[in-house]
Structures are given as structure tokens and as C-alpha cells.
Amino acid sequence: MSVSTVSLAINHPHRVNEVTRRAIIAVAVEMGYRGAQVATGQRIAVAAPFSSYPSYYTRLTGILAANASVGAHIIVHDLPSTAAEDAPVLDTLPVKTDLDGIIVMGAPLSPHATESPALPGPPVVLVDVPDNTQRHPDIPTVLIDDHRGGALLGEHLVGLGHTRVAFLHEEQRSPDYLSAGMLRADGIATHLECVSIPVKPADDVASVVAEVHKDPSITVIAANHDALAAAIAATPAQQDAPLPLTGYDGSDLAAALGITTVWQPFEESGRAAFGLLMQLLEGEHSSLSVLTLAPRLVVNRSTTAARDIGEVTPRRAG
């Protein structure tokens, strides 16, 4: 793959087809790619758990599209999944002297990240990092309303007669931050009882789903994201006597499998974050602290009306 093709994909994404662009972005994230020298000379680091959650590639696409008219260097950093860490990881992000700005997605900032004696450093914009501690109130943040998204799912499920849902999600090892999954579960719980079930890295998804099927009071399963919903749909218990199922993200995978989901404006969040960072670099001090975008419910065939206990095909006993 030529250097010119890589440069086009990173700095002029509209000129490269979708399949090629995604492949190049994945390699660029892995290698920490730095673009060639351009007119502005600005260097923007974008850090996110790309390998753990492919949805961050779509957010990055929005950043790259916004950068097409600016021509800054885009330097990508792949972070570990915050859910799998014992503590937030952002204090280990390499903040080099040649960076003009940083966009951090999906990983909370530790106190050391913004309280170092070496600061002030380059301006920072956060994406998908709810700050329930108000630890960093002065950092502009772009969010998608996960609580609202969960509430949309809950309202939909109650309308179908469901009263108790199993919410399956990755294990969150650190309680020191508010995750998107927690907000989604809280949103669902505004309409019906929500049973939170963590799926640990060592767990077999099939065995977790089999246990859920043993509880007759649970009439629907909600997954924290579409990839997990797809894994649930493929388990023997779901194949044998499927419970209604929802995902989250609005991915092509959910559409292909007919899974009800919540669409998120990922690209828009990336574009908005880049715009806020450009304002900071131009010396503008916006009063905006949090920009919250709205999700949208996408209903598909995976959610059906609740059945009475004992009605139709009995579930697997395990």
C-alpha cells in the first residue's frame, strides 16, 4: 500500500473508498501513524480504545473528515479498554512537546492528566467521557446521551409488555468512573426492572446466556453494544428458544442480523470534537462545556411482545 494512499485516507478521507479507508485507519492506529508535513503544521493526537471498540473508528472518520479542510497532522494512539483496567489510564498518554492539541475518546482522565506541574499543555477535548466527578469541568466534552438511549429502549420494551430485562455488559473493574453502559442501564431502569449482568473476559457468553434463560421472570435481553448482541444471538440458548434481544450503537451488524438497537451519531461527535479543538487552538474560549448529541431508536425484528410464563416453547434447562 503506497504512502500516498495512506496520506489520502488519513488527511483526505473523502477521496478514498470506504473499505480501503477503514483498513488504512486500522493499520494507522496500530502503528501510531504521523501524517506528512502540511501547511498548518498543527499536530493533533487522537487517543481511543480502537482495538477494543470498533465504533471509535467511525468517530475517527468524523475527525478526519473535519480535518480535510484544515490539513493538520493526525496522530493516532490505541488505548486499552478502560473497563478492563483497574484504574483510569489517561495519565500514561504520551503528551509530547510537539503536540498542539489532543482529542481523547472513551477513556477517563486521571487527576494527574490535568494537574501536572508541567501544564498548561496542549488543549484537550474529550469524546464519550462522562465526568460525573466534575474533576475536569473546564475541558470541553462531546457526549451522546446514553441515558436517553437506554430510556428509549426501556420505553420500547415496556410497550411490548416486558417488565424485567437482563442487561449484559463487559465487567467494569474500576468503580472510579461513570461508563456509557452504566448510563444506558440507568435509562432502561426508568421504565422496567433492569438486572445488570457483567460478562467477564474469562466467561463463555453462551454459559452466561444459558443462565439468563433459566430465570423465567426475564423476558428480554439487552446487550451493551451490537457486537455483544450478535454474540448472544449466536448462543445455543438463543438459537433454541430466543428471547427478544436488543443491542446498542446502530451498526451495520445489527441491521444485518435484524437486531433492535440505538443508533449513535458517531461521525458527528468526531466532527464536533475537532471543531471545538480548532476553536481552542485559535484562542477562542467558548462557554460550552458539554455538547450532548441525541441517539435514535432503531426497531427491528429481534424485539417481540413478552410471552406469559409457560407459554409456547419452553426454554433450555441448561
Rank of each mutant, 00 (worst) to 15 (best):
P175L: 00
S4D: 13
H73R: 08
A118H: 09
P111C: 00
R148M: 13
D186T: 10
V312H: 12
P175A: 00
S52G: 08
D308Y: 12
E155S: 14
R315L: 14
R301G: 02
S217N: 06
I75S: 06
G161V: 13
H147N: 06
K200C: 13
Y248H: 04
H77I: 12
V205R: 07
R43E: 11
Q239I: 02
R22D: 11
R43C: 07
T261D: 14
Y57V: 11
R43V: 12
V27C: 06
D86H: 04
L60P: 02
P49K: 03
A36S: 15
A23I: 09
P295F: 03
E193M: 02
D176E: 15
L192H: 04
P49R: 03
A113H: 02
V70R: 05
Q172S: 02
H14S: 10
H112Y: 15
A47H: 02
P111E: 00
Q42E: 15
I102F: 08
S207K: 15
D249M: 04
R43I: 07
H147I: 05
R15A: 12
T261F: 07
V195S: 08
T82N: 10
P122W: 02
E30M: 06
T40K: 03
R307Q: 14
P88M: 03
I25K: 06
G106H: 13
D215V: 13
T292S: 09
S174R: 03
R315I: 13
L160H: 11
L288Q: 14
V125M: 01
I221H: 06
T313N: 08
D98G: 04
T313R: 12
P216Y: 07
G71V: 08
I218M: 00
T313D: 10
I63C: 03
S69P: 02
D138F: 05
V27I: 12
H14K: 06
Q239V: 03
D176S: 15
A107R: 06
T5R: 12
P130H: 00
T141Y: 01
T20P: 07
E268L: 05
G318V: 05
T141F: 00
P198I: 09
D145M: 04
P175E: 01
H73N: 15
A241Q: 14
T114Q: 05
Q134N: 14
A180N: 13
Y57L: 10
S52F: 11
D131S: 07
S174E: 05
A151G: 10
G35Y: 01
T5M: 12
L109V: 01
Q42K: 15
A256V: 10
A166Y: 09
G181N: 09
G275I: 00
D131F: 07
L152G: 04
M1F: 08
V125K: 01
P120E: 02
V16M: 00
D308E: 15
R59N: 07
R301T: 14
G318T: 07
H136I: 05
P236G: 01
L192N: 04
L152W: 02
I44D: 08
R164N: 06
I63Q: 02
P295D: 05
S217D: 09
L90I: 03
P265M: 01
T58R: 04
A189N: 12
R59E: 08
A83K: 11
T190S: 13
